[in-house]
Amino acid sequence: MAARVFFLFTLGYFLSYFFRSANAVLSKDLSMDLGLSPAQLGFMTSLFYLAFALTQLPLGGLLDRLGPRRVTPLFLTVAALGSLVFGLAPGFAVLALGRALIGVGMASALMGAMKAFSLWFPRTYATMSTLLVGLGATGGLLAATPLALLKESVGWRGVFLGAALLVLLVALALYLGVRDAPPGTALPRASREEGSAWRHPALLRVGALAFSFAGGFLALQTLWAGAYPYALGYGAVQVGNLLLLYSLSAVFGFLVSGYLADRFGTARVLLLSGALFALGLALLLMKALGAAYLVLGFFGAFNILTLTQARELVPPHLTGRATTLVNLMGIGGTFLLQWGIGVVVGSLGYPAAFLGLLALQLLALLLYRPLLRPPRTGQGRA
């Protein structure tokens, strides 16, 4: 049963990563077929993240009260509906609705897995959860050349109609094939007085680090790590190679981060990796792009440990709310930092933008540093 839990939740996250990445390959087809302007294309694509972020807090409460076995399949069904709406969309408005529904539904893929893993793999939680993320992130590879070949055969609409059926099958498999917790272990329940993750102020320190660390990592990976070398005069193939280095380094970072956290302690590994991510930002300022992208990708992936840290700071009945709160800060950081970097670049240039990102990361690490004290599970620390 434990292996089935891991496989099915990992498959759900794989599909989530595929959907978030798919529009990069399909953007030309969507624009031509539906007459989308660049602004409409960008707004529609960003709705995945906006819907994903807005869903986090209510999702956490549902996971804690009802369990991941019921909640995750329900949300995946919403994602399947969104994929169906997207595939049948006659124009921009319906397309945007479908994209938003996919974001709402896929918000449960990672968080449901984190809740389930906290119950099924309590002693190796960091290792198993980051292994999930590393393997799931390969969904982005499926949304590259394989997707380009597939849409030539069935069209972009056929891709989303087929994906809707696949997501629905995974939802059904999760509902029928997994349990919330191992046999003999009850799903932890919170009393009304204990039901708020906000009562644990240490989570705000973790959230601040997630804002700069996860937000900075994703803001670079999904936009500025490509735009910057273009601005320096690099050609398309060179830029593609740099982005591949960033992404492959991130996959390896995801895969080893959990093992290191279990071996040496989450707070220690998170602080060190955050500092090395700051080093990568300094390398960007020095225009040493090869070394910078290797460091930023590999150590930036360790940002996933902010979710592990959130789980360690609260009792079991609050893990859903704690992890979704911290994830909200990371996704919010992605929105704001991606936009903010653009504003600074437009007025002051790339060096000022990267210097600001470096300063923010160092400030977040300073705020996080008190959590190096040995954790007391279930008690928040200021």
Rank of each mutant, 00 (worst) to 15 (best):
residue 3 A to C: 10
residue 3 A to P: 02
residue 5 V to L: 01
residue 6 F to G: 07
residue 11 L to T: 11
residue 18 F to M: 07
residue 19 F to Y: 13
residue 22 A to S: 09
residue 24 A to Q: 10
residue 24 A to Y: 14
residue 26 L to K: 07
residue 32 M to L: 15
residue 32 M to P: 15
residue 32 M to V: 13
residue 33 D to P: 10
residue 37 S to Y: 08
residue 39 A to Y: 07
residue 43 F to L: 14
residue 43 F to I: 15
residue 43 F to G: 14
residue 54 L to G: 08
residue 66 L to E: 14
residue 75 F to I: 05
residue 75 F to K: 03
residue 77 T to F: 15
residue 77 T to G: 13
residue 84 L to E: 06
residue 84 L to I: 00
residue 96 A to C: 06
residue 102 I to Q: 00
residue 110 L to G: 04
residue 116 A to Q: 07
residue 126 A to V: 12
residue 128 M to E: 09
residue 129 S to M: 06
residue 130 T to W: 11
residue 133 V to K: 08
residue 138 T to D: 12
residue 140 G to P: 09
residue 151 K to R: 14
residue 154 V to T: 09
residue 162 G to K: 04
residue 164 A to Y: 06
residue 165 L to T: 11
residue 165 L to H: 08
residue 179 R to C: 04
residue 182 P to D: 12
residue 187 L to D: 03
residue 196 S to C: 11
residue 200 H to M: 10
residue 201 P to L: 13
residue 201 P to H: 14
residue 208 A to D: 04
residue 210 A to F: 02
residue 220 L to N: 12
residue 221 Q to N: 14
residue 222 T to H: 15
residue 239 V to E: 02
residue 240 G to E: 08
residue 243 L to K: 13
residue 244 L to A: 15
residue 250 A to Q: 15
residue 251 V to K: 06
residue 253 G to L: 02
residue 255 L to W: 03
residue 257 S to Y: 02
residue 259 Y to R: 14
residue 271 L to Y: 12
residue 273 S to C: 11
residue 273 S to K: 05
residue 275 A to D: 09
residue 279 L to W: 00
residue 280 G to R: 00
residue 283 L to K: 04
residue 283 L to F: 00
residue 288 A to S: 06
residue 292 A to F: 04
residue 294 L to T: 08
residue 295 V to E: 08
residue 295 V to I: 08
residue 296 L to N: 05
residue 296 L to S: 09
residue 307 L to M: 05
residue 313 L to P: 14
residue 322 A to W: 00
residue 323 T to P: 07
residue 333 G to F: 04
residue 334 T to Q: 07
residue 336 L to R: 01
residue 336 L to N: 12
residue 345 V to H: 04
residue 348 L to N: 05
residue 348 L to V: 12
residue 358 L to G: 06
residue 359 A to T: 13
residue 360 L to N: 04
residue 361 Q to K: 10
residue 363 L to N: 13
residue 364 A to D: 09
residue 372 L to R: 10
residue 372 L to P: 01
residue 373 R to T: 14
residue 376 R to F: 14
residue 376 R to E: 13
residue 377 T to H: 11
